[in-house]
Structures are given as structure tokens and as C-alpha cells.
């Protein structure tokens, strides 16, 4: 009886993941059929009229990936540094307190990060953003984007906020694996007269690399799916498609869905967003499965 119950619950969870994929697909199909443009290659998004649906994922996907990638580029080195600091440098008595402080970052809800990004960090970053745009504007990343730099609703701001948000995720996993570096290897390096940094380079980093990459993938997955912070921060674009600039804006898949939730009054319109959600689901699924695959295949656990 009890065994059956436990097994059933396991089955329920497995069924749940399958159900998510299947039901999203079911609800998206009618809208995809009604779509007048190509879903995968178009960037247009007009879904108000069920008889004239024109929606494509391209720009949303691009902004989603660009924001998450930018956040990852910022967060990865810092998270690595923090993980090393917590496991190799901080005095043992303080390491736990320090680790707790980093974990606190994960406890702050994303809506609060979003508000802070919108009202505090965004404005504070404007001078930097303008300086980059003025002086390094020839470089595509810093060229003029499709939203106002002064407004702050750019990938630049959003990426920085996202980086802060995924920092504790990457750090937690990296720290855990760094802590497991075999003692005898560390001692072996020390006995050769290695400095603390050299010990890290010869033992901790090679041992923890897979965990670090996997933690970063999980952070990436989190960044791709983050909704409300980006919903608050990113401002709507003035028409031009996003290109390579960090000063582009508009919306990610998730923030677009949240933004237009009020439009969900007929099934066909809602289906367009569900189709977008399905893309996000697949994307995060792949990233998370990859992260898991890296941990299992590399650490042999």
C-alpha cells in the first residue's frame, strides 16, 4: 500500500514533466496553425485578432538568449571567485557566515531585484552606459540600441541584475564541488612548495571544473526563465528589431508572456504565448539536462 503510494508519487512527477510538454503543445497547436507568419523565423508579434495571428519567436528568443548570456558572462568569473574565496581563502570560522550571506542573495525574490533594477540600479548605470555608447559605440555591443539608454530598460541593465540573481546558484554548486577536492591532492601540491593560488590551479580547479560548468549551466537555465525582474526592467522597443547591442531592449520570452497576460481572453491569442512558453520550456529543459549530464558523466556520481 505505502509502497504503491510512494511509487505512484514518483510516477506522478514523471507524468508531470511529460504533461507540461504535451499540454503546452496541445494548446499551442491551433494558434500555430492559424499563424500567418513563420513562428520560428519571424520577429513580428500581433496576436490581438484571432483571425489575423502574426507571431514569431525570433526577436524574443534573441533577447532572451542575449540577456541570459550577458548575465552568465558577468556572473561566471565572480561566482568562481566567490566559491574559491569561501572554500580556500576565508578563515574557517567565518566561511559559514560568508556563505550564508551569499545564500541570502538567493532568498531575495526576483520582483524585488526587478524593482531595484528599474528604479535604483538602472538610473545609476546610465552614465556608464552612455559613456560606453559614446566612446565605444563603434563596437557592435555598445552601439545604439532600440530603446533609450537614459531610460535604463536595456539588456545592459537587465543582464547585470540577472547576473546578481544567478550568482548564488552558480556559487552554491561550485562551492560544494570545490570543497570535495581530495585532501591528498592538495597536500601533494603543498609539499612541492606551491603557493595557495598554485594549489588551486593544480588541484582545485581541475577537480572542480565539471561542477563549475554544470553550476553555470543551471544559472543559465535560471536566467533564461527569469520573468518578473525582466518584466519590470526591460522597456518596450520603438519598433526596430534588436541587433547585437547591449542597449537593445524589448522583451524576453518570459517577460513578454507576463507583460501580455491580460490578453489571454481567447484561446487562439493565448495559444501564441503558450507556443512561446513551449520554446522556453524546451530551451531550459535542454540546458538543465545538459547541466545534469555534465555532473553525472564527469563526477561519475
Amino acid at each position: 500500500m505505502f509502497r504503491g503510494l510512494a511509487l505512484g508519487s514518483g510516477g506522478f512527477v514523471v507524468a508531470l514533466i511529460a504533461a507540461i510538454g504535451i499540454f503546452l503543445l496541445l494548446q499551442a497547436l491551433p494558434s500555430l496553425q492559424a499563424n500567418q507568419v513563420s513562428f520560428l523565423t519571424s520577429g513580428e508579434w500581433t496576436t490581438g485578432d484571432p483571425n489575423d495571428m502574426r507571431f514569431g519567436i525570433l526577436y524574443l528568443l534573441w533577447v532572451t538568449v542575449a540577456t541570459a548570456a550577458f548575465a552568465l558572462v558577468l556572473a561566471m568569473p565572480v561566482a568562481l571567485g566567490i566559491a574559491l574565496f569561501l572554500t580556500q581563502y576565508a578563515p574557517r570560522a567565518l566561511a559559514r557566515v560568508f556563505a550564508y550571506i551569499i545564500d541570502l542573495l538567493a532568498a531575495v525574490p526576483s520582483i524585488i531585484f526587478g524593482l531595484w533594477g528599474l528604479q535604483v540600479l538602472g538610473p545609476a548605470l546610465v552614465p556608464t552606459a552612455e559613456w560606453l555608447n559614446t566612446n565605444l559605440g563603434w563596437f557592435p555591443l555598445f552601439s545604439d540600441g532600440n530603446v533609450s539608454i537614459r531610460g535604463g530598460g536595456t539588456i545592459f541593465t537587465a543582464g547585470i541584475v540577472l547576473a546578481v540573481m544567478i550568482l548564488p546558484i552558480i556559487t552554491a554548486i561550485t562551492r560544494e564541488i570545490f570543497e570535495r577536492t581530495p585532501k591528498d591532492q592538495i597536500e601533494g601540491a603543498l609539499a612541492l612548495g606551491a603557493t595557495r593560488w598554485e594549489v588551486i590551479r593544480t588541484t582545485v580547479l581541475p577537480f572542480g571544473r565539471a561542477g563549475y560548468v554544470s553550476g553555470s549551466m543551471l544559472g543559465l537555465g535560471r536566467a533564461l526563465g527569469e520573468t518578473v525582474a525582466l518584466y519590470l526592467i526591460l522597456s518596450g522597443a520603438s519598433g526596430r528589431a534588436p541587433e547585437l547591442s547591449l542597449f537593445d531592449g524589448d522583451a524576453t520570452i518570459a517577460s513578454k508572456i507576463a507583460n501580455d497576460a491580460a490578453e489571454f481572453n481567447n484561446e487562439i491569442s493565448a495559444g501564441a504565448y503558450i507556443a512561446a512558453g513551449l520554446v522556453l520550456f524546451v530551451l531550459t529543459f535542454v540546458v538543465n539536462a545538459l547541466a545534469r549530464w555534465i555532473t553525472t558523466s564527469r563526477t561519475g556520481k
Partner: peptide
């Protein structure tokens, strides 16, 4: 220098 009980080459 030091050599340990369990061989510990860098893997």
C-alpha cells in the same frame, strides 16, 4: 619535500 602514505599523483 614530502611523500605520503597513499600515492597522490595529480589525476
Amino acid at each position: 619535500g614530502m611523500v605520503f602514505q597513499r600515492p597522490n599523483p595529480f589525476p
